[in-house]
Amino acid sequence: MSAITPTTRRSSSILDAAARLAAATARPCAPVRDLLGVTDIDSAYAVQQRLTDDRVAAGGTITGRKIGLTSPAVQQQLGVNQPDFGVLFADMDVTGLPEVPSSRLLQPKAEAEIAFELGADLVDGDLGLAQVRCAVARAAAALEIVDSRIADWDITITDTVADNGSSGLYVLGENWLTLDDFEPREVSMRLFSGEELVSEGTGAACLGDPLEALSWLARTARDYGQPLRAGQVILSGALGPMVPTPPGTTVRAELSTLGTVTATFSKDTHS
């Protein structure tokens, strides 16, 4: 029997982690950090990329990215000092549906964010704050419905990165504005579950400025060989704590200037 080289072992771990996550369709699975460790973020993104490639091969269309771990408190909880990202697909946008399909989710939570739509590619240059500001065509309020294939949300940075940044679905508000109309870092947010206020925050809670989060994403996506492109939607990161959204829940986010976005979760559960 031939010896397993580190490269072979790493490749095998990536394949095994991807297979475990791909199989978690009806119920959550165990964390994948036993395969990837808790610090090898490059391997975690390799798992994410493999799952992304499989989804594209099956007919999925990439429409943007989501940024996660933008809160310093959450970063400290997971022992990391940077955000992460996941890939958005066309079928994750459920804005036009009367209800969010709970049957497509395992253990969802909602968080209120600012969504940016890009009007220019972010490929060349320093990808700093001024450049990404110029690249944003418009922005809207959004609800990101995060979900985890890892049982009980028992995640480290490698678990969530491998699991596409714990992406689920998302809902966009109807009111789109340009950055001439508002400053993302100055936005205030209130999130309600039913009529109960369950989360509050501001744009400054997202890495100090959602545009700073976008700048980080633009550089990181380019580093991984998948730069941001015109027309893509970017969910820039939570403005406050996320809240559970079991079947039958209605959540409403009120973002100053940008307006309101609402989502009602259907009562049908995952079969």
Rank of each mutant, 00 (worst) to 15 (best):
A46T: 12
L129Q: 12
G96E: 07
T202S: 06
E117R: 12
G59N: 06
R20Q: 14
A253D: 02
L106A: 08
A17M: 13
V198P: 08
M1S: 10
L35W: 04
G259A: 07
Q49E: 13
V80N: 10
V47F: 01
T202Q: 14
E117V: 15
V136N: 10
D84E: 14
Q232I: 03
T264K: 09
L197V: 08
E196V: 09
S256Q: 04
V198H: 06
F182W: 03
N164F: 07
A120L: 06
D54N: 14
R229H: 08
P83Q: 00
R222P: 03
P247Y: 01
A57I: 06
L78H: 10
V38N: 10
D121C: 04
V171W: 05
A137Y: 03
A46G: 01
F265E: 04
D181V: 08
P247G: 09
G237Y: 01
P247I: 00
T260R: 15
A18V: 11
E254G: 02
T8K: 07
P98Y: 03
A73R: 13
A218P: 04
S13G: 05
D223Q: 15
R190P: 03
T70K: 05
L97Q: 14
V123T: 13
D121K: 07
T158N: 09
V47C: 08
A58N: 05
V123N: 08
D181G: 11
L235T: 05
T249V: 03
A120C: 11
G231Y: 11
L106M: 14
T156R: 08
T264W: 03
R9F: 08
P108K: 08
G37H: 09
R229C: 03
S199Y: 02
A19G: 08
E183Y: 00
N175R: 15
E200S: 06
A137P: 03
R55W: 02
E254S: 10
T249I: 00
T260D: 10
G37W: 06
